[in-house]
């Protein structure tokens, strides 16, 4: 359903590729810093793709009446929201991760760094979708949700973004440093997966009152 929902998945990927290419045009391709910009740009654009597509995570269900039915269904709302976040990750973040090796050619990212970047994205981006579902749960009934939601959840993206970028770009490129960084990304994702569906369910229920 995520892939067919108004072409959200394809639009997310097209948005990602377009922003990467347009942003790359703004930098001096011969600069020594150019390949350092790549991972940061990929992470920030992935984050923006998640944000742009997250608005409809719950709002569509609210507008067509499905949310009422999901609330009275025998399936716990927490599980429904967790599955929605997971489906969102599959439809938005996974295609971005898969296209990263192609994009990395543009920035001439070294192979070792590319592997770290892809593993980092794989471990870190699920947290972005779970944080997005929390934002969507608090703003789905509001008219200006598309503006309010990014403002609300952007601060929660900072830890994932910082660790995601730093483990690739940090000068001290030791295996231990990379593993620790990846473990922190995994910890953020696991924490998000275990806590945020419950918080989002509370958000949905309180918004309906």
């Amino acid at each position: 359903m995520s892939f067919t929902a108004n072409g959200t998945a394809i639009l997310g990927l097209v948005f990602f590729i377009t922003v990467i290419f347009v942003s790359a045009l703004g930098f001096d391709i011969n600069s020594t810093d150019f390949n350092l910009i790549g991972p940061s740009l990929i992470w920030v654009t992935a984050l923006l793709s998640v944000l742009l597509s997250a608005k409809n995570l719950i709002q569509d269900d609210f507008r067509d009446g499905s949310l009422d039915l999901l609330l009275i269904s025998p399936i716990p709302l927490e599980l429904v929201l967790a599955l929605k976040a997971f489906a969102h990750w599959i439809s938005i973040s996974l295609p971005i991760i898969l296209i990263c090796p192609v994009i990395s050619v543009l920035f001439t990212i070294p192979f070792d760094n590319l592997i770290i970047l892809i593993i980092g994205l794989f471990l870190g981006t699920p947290a972005l979708s779970f944080i997005a579902i929390l934002g969507a749960s608090l703003t789905f009934s509001l008219r200006r949700s598309s503006i309010l939601m990014p403002i609300l959840i952007m601060p929660f993206y900072i830890p994932t973004l910082v660790f995601g970028v730093k483990i690739v770009n940090f000068t001290e490129n030791t295996n231990e440093y990379h593993i620790n960084g990846l473990l922190i990304l995994l910890a953020i994702t696991l924490l998000s997966m275990s806590v945020l569906p419950f918080a989002a369910a509370m958000g949905v229920k309180s918004c309906l009152k």
Binding site: D64, D68, I72
Partner: peptide, 22 residues
């Protein structure tokens, strides 16, 4: 008790609960 009510009631509101793209 929302979870219990789902076992007892069948509900249809103003909105149909249908996904237009499916």
């Amino acid at each position: 008790k929302l979870d219990v009510k789902g076992e007892i009631f069948s509900y249809l509101g103003h909105l149909n609960g249908l996904k237009s793209h499916l």
